[in-house]
Every structure is written in C-alpha cells, then in structure tokens.
Nucleic acid binder design. Structure first.
Lengths: 196, 196, 196, 196
DNA sequence: AATGAATGAGTGTTCATTCAT
DNA sequence: TATGAATGAACACTCATTCAT
C-alpha cells in the first residue's frame, strides 16, 4: 500500500540507499579521486543537487562507507575469539570459522571491502585495529594453553591480517579459491608450519 | 668541466634526479592525487616547465618511480631461492636471509616502497608477481624435500607477501621492530606453526 | 472558526507574518545574498514550499519589506513640515520633533531600517526621495521667513539625510545616544553653526 | 625597450593591474555578489586561471580594493587638520580645503569609493574611523578657540561623514554639483547655521 | 637548461525554485 | 494549508600542461 502510487525515487530513503550503493561500487572500481559525483548521480538517475540532499560532500559519503565497513568488520572479529574449554581437536576448525566469516564478508561486500581495506587513507588504522583485536584473541588462547609462546603475538596478528588482505585480493576476488579453502590453508600453515 | 657556471646545484641530470627524489617523497606522503607538480617544483627550486623538460607528465614520473621499485624488488626476490644441498639446520636462517633483504629494502626506500606496494594502481600486480616468484622458490624447495606438500604453495606465497606487506607498514615503518626481528618471527611462524 | 484545527500557531496569515518578520531580521543581519530561504523557513518552522505559498520569490519578499519601510518613512517625513505662523522661539523644538520621529522609527524598526536604508539597491532612491521631501519642507520654511537663503536647500536636505543616516548607524543603533539627543544636536548644529 | 616585443598581457604586473581595475569597476557597478569572476576575466581578455594567478580568491581581490581605498582615504583625512594660529577669516576656506580633497578623491575614484564606502561589509567601520579622525581635528580646533563647545563633537564628526556620504552619492556622482560647491555649502551650513 | 605567463578542461558545491501529493 | 523530494542553472576554484622567450 505504501508502495502504491510511488514513483521512481519518490522515497527519500530509497534514493539515499541507491546513491550509497552506487557510490560504493564506483569508489571501489575507480578509487576516490577518479570517482565523480556526476557519474554517481547519472547512474542513480538523479541530479547532482539530489546527491547533496543526502550527503554533505563527496568525502562525507566516502567516510560513511568506510564507517559501514568498519562496523561490520568489528562484529566479525569479535565473534572469532575461541571459547575456553575447547577440545584441542576442534581448535583448527574453530579458528577457521573466524577466518571464513571474514572471507565471506569480503566475498559479499567486495566494494565495501575495497574501500575500507585498500582505498581509505585510514585503511592502515583499520588493519591495525583488526590486528589488535586478533592479538587479543590470540593472547587469550595462549593463556588457555592452546598455543606456545615462542613468537610475538602482535607480529602473528599482523601477519594474519596481511595474509587475509593479500589472499582476499589475489585469490578470493579472482575466484581462484573459496573462503573455506583459504581459511583451511591459513590454519594449516599457521598452526603447523611448513616444515616436514 | 661539468661544474663550470653551474648555479644552485642544477645541472640537467642533477635537476632530474632531484625532482625524482622529491616526487618520490611527495607521492609517498600525500598519495598520487594530493601530490601537486607545483609543490614538487617548489621544493626543487625549479619552475614548472623545467619539470616537463625531464618528465613527460605527472603520470610518467610516477610510473618511472614504480618501475624503479619493481626492478629493485625483483633482484631481491630472485636471490632468495634456496640452493639445493642446503643443510636442514641452516634452512631457517637461509629463508630469513631473503626476508631480511626485502625488509632492508623497505627500510632504506620507504617512499619507493609506498609507491610500488601501496599507492600504485598496479600494486596488486606487483604483489602477484612477487608471490609468483616466491611460489617458484617454494616449489623448488618442496622438490628439494625441505617442505611437506600439504598446503597450496601459491596460497603460502601470497600469504607471505601479505605478511611482509602488513608487517612493513605496522612494525617496520613504525619502528616497532627491526628487519631481523620480523624475518625471524615470520620464519618461526611459517616453519613451525603456533601449535604446541 | 478560523481557529479550528490550527496547529503550531500556523494559520495562513500567521505563517506569512512570521516569515516576513524573520526574513526582515535575517536580511538585516546577513544582507540579501547571505540570507538563505532555507534558513528563514527553518527559523519559522515551515518548509520551503510553504514560503512560496506566500511570497513569489526571495526578491519579492525583500521588496515587500522595502515597501513597508518606505511607506512608514513617508508618513513621518510629511508630518515634519513646519506650520506657518509658528513662533520663532518654538522653531528648534518643532524641527527636532520631526527628527525625533525618524530616529524613533529607526529605533523601533532597526531591521526594516537597515533593509530600506542600507541594503536595498534602491536605498539611494529612498534617500533621494526623503531629501526631496525635506527640501520641500525647508523651502516652505524659507518662504515663511524662518531661514536665510544663502545656501542651496537641496544640499542642506541631502546633508540632513546623510547626518540622519550616519548618526543612526554610529550613535543610535550602538546605544551611544538617544533619539532625543541626536535630534537636539542636529538642530543645534544646523541652525546655529559651530562658529563662536 | 622593455616594451618592445611584449605582447598583450605578457607582463604579469600589467595583467594584475588590469584585473584589479576592471574588478573595481565591476564591483562598483554590480555589487559583490552580482560580480562574477567570469565577467572580470572576460573584460580583461584573460582566462579564469589567470585571475587566480594574481588573486587568491574573489574575496581577496575585493579586500585588496577595500584596503586601497582605506589607505588613500586615511592620507586625506590626516591632512585636513587646521594648523594653529590660523587667521579666523581663513577658517572657512581652510576647512573647505579638507572637504574638497575628499570630494576630489571620490570624483577621481568613484569605483573605489563605492566599494569602500558602500559595498564593503566594513564600510561602517571605515566611516567610524573617518569620523574619529575628524572628531580629533575638531577637538583641536575647539581647543584653538575656533569653535564653541555647545555641541558634542563626536556627533558633529559623524554628521559630517554622513553629509559627505550622501552628498557624494546624490550630488557629486550625479554631476549636479562640483567638489568645490559641495565643500563650500557644507562649510556654510555647519559653520554658520541656517538661522537668520 | 630554464622561465614568466597563460590556459583548457574539469569538479564539487550551492541555492532558489517547483512538482506531485 | 502544507510537505517530501527533486532540479536547473550557475559559479568559484584547481591543476596539469604549454607557449614564447
């Protein structure tokens, strides 16, 4: 009923969401500077002033997308902490679970992922935050006796972030591997190492 | 002779080299788009037309810097292949050696590193190439019997690239760890894993 | 009856009057160009289309305010003509009376005053008209024998307008002098001069 | 010689001066907001970027013109102080001299005058400063015994500024009176008053 | 080898105004 | 009487790049 009689774009929230979605794709594809407002609005079938009805500026919409990314990512990372009393056999699978979550997220939101992880000037901060979160998790897990302490967990955490990063770009987004495969391999490498 | 009549240190080649160096720093600090030719020349104490005397365009100088990075990086990666007949005990150190080379390079050429690894649109390609190179090395090493074959070496290679990437940004350039420390830790993790 | 169903104090005429009052204050404070319709309606708690329900355009509402000013001013000036047969002793007070009227008006309607006398493109015309009116009065007064004829009454009239103008801005609206004080001083100066 | 071979606008300072002059006229004729940079440059036969080569912004060039006005005006007002030991007979002429200077200035620089005295947001300040200067002069003259003390000299000073203002607009710029006539009349009015 | 001066082409942003409801 | 949504038309400003010398 609320839909009846509504014309294309006659709902503000719809226009806003549309612009946001298109902007995400444009930013992801062309980067911040090569993305033109004029193009976004063209694809959304609205005029430039309409854009400014919903977003304060080009930078503002970009930051909103960044924020969106950060929030969604934060949820995922928090969930991936291992509960205590976990069966040692189940450990690999449990860790993989967390990774799969992240890779799934990147699969489903590639544009958001590119923006938050690669394009944003604050991407380094975001990755640092993620690493800090992971480090926290790892330390709990060390305390729980799952891991030995021969390595600097901050370095491990950052290493994991880097692996996720690169594998997402090189394997996930190219379709060469699935989220599950990547997660399983990372776990295999990091848990057991390469040495025979 | 080449010295005669030279003012303000601006022989042709000198101006060119100066511009190149300043441009590298500017690109690294502000990114491609926020780097203005007008700023580069100001810092080099020359005028804009002088810039175009030595470089075809803004893009051209950027690409030249990229190229410089790629070449220097390629050398390093090639060297890091393990020779056959290596003592198994020496393995970790040998691998670490390669990593240290890379980290040293990033330490000594941070601007070039940022450009080639983070700013350039072709950074992904560069990383892919590096991963391919590493994969090659790893496969030789598998063949030589150093490593088991339970993991996809392409994924390992990309993972390593990712680790290098993130650790460079988060640990090396922030001064939190040295090249040696990082190399040692990576080796520890990837060779033996975290599991007790 | 007109009261039925009225919300938020917004009967038609009320809205209109409210907008007019707010617009006057905004124009006076920020000038024509820095006054935004969007701001006026925000302060009036109505939407932009509502504005256009009552006023044809931004220019139209401004002109309406100008007109308002001009009408109120015209009344004042007309009243200030000196009646014939006036006692010479009473002359200064009589003239001061007219000035006081004008200064009172500016005191009570500063926004309107600013609009009509300073902001409007036709402020010069308004002042010219006022000067003409005053000149008329002065000429009657000359004829009535109150003043000598050694000066060009058009210049005197314009001079008086200028004095009123500047003193309003610099003394009246800053609170440094009252309408009465200013009127008395002007009379003293213009009637008797400065010379000992 | 320095002129030979020079093409239209091939001298930076010339372009700058040209733009400044045209801008003054445009601002004076159309006001700040209705003056478009695009128009200024069109009249100067240069392109928009050229404008920004010499002026930081539209506001900046306007302020530069304001400043120009203020400086020139300040010189004039300072000169108009009466020297002590002046013959009482010469007084009127001496005062008129100062006024003539101001009126001449307005005659020769009408655009600058409009900008500094009417268009600028700080016109009120400029007038206040002028009034203060005049008040200073008047007080010296009172002390020297030229004038009686029955009136508030600050009000007289502001009154004079107002007269100058209005007479400039209504009489000088319309060509109805010359600088000399206006000065003489003002002196006559303010010195001797109107009363028979 | 180097420059003073100039520009083509573009881009984000603003604001008064109106349509459909 | 009132509004949510949308737009036409501008305009200031920027920057890489080049011409003439």
């Amino acid at each position: 009923m609320a839909q009846r009689g509504r014309k294309k774009g006659s709902d503000g929230e719809l226009s806003r969401a549309l612009l946001l979605r298109i902007a995400a794709d444009e930013f992801a594809e062309h980067g911040y500077y090569e993305t033109k407002i004029s193009n976004i609005v063209k694809k959304a079938n609205v005029t430039q002033p309409t854009f400014y009805l919903y977003f304060k500026s080009k930078e503002a919409i970009f930051q909103e997308l960044e924020e969106l990314f950060r929030k969604k990512l934060a949820c995922l990372t928090i969930d991936s902490r291992l509960e205590e009393g976990l069966d040692e056999q189940a450990l690999p699978e449990r860790i993989a679970g967390g990774l799969i979550g992240v890779f799934h997220f990147f699969t489903e939101h590639p544009s958001l992922g590119k923006i938050g992880f690669y394009l944003s000037p604050s991407a380094a901060d975001t990755k640092a935050a993620m690493a800090a979160q992971i480090e926290d998790n790892l330390l709990s897990e060390v305390e729980a006796g799952y891991f030995h302490q021969n390595v600097d967990m901050s370095i491990v955490a950052n290493g994991l972030v880097g692996m996720i990063d690169q594998l997402t770009v090189a394997k996930l987004w190219t379709g060469k591997n699935t989220a599950d495969e990547l997660a399983k391999e990372i776990v295999a490498i990091v848990l057991n190492g390469l040495k025979k």
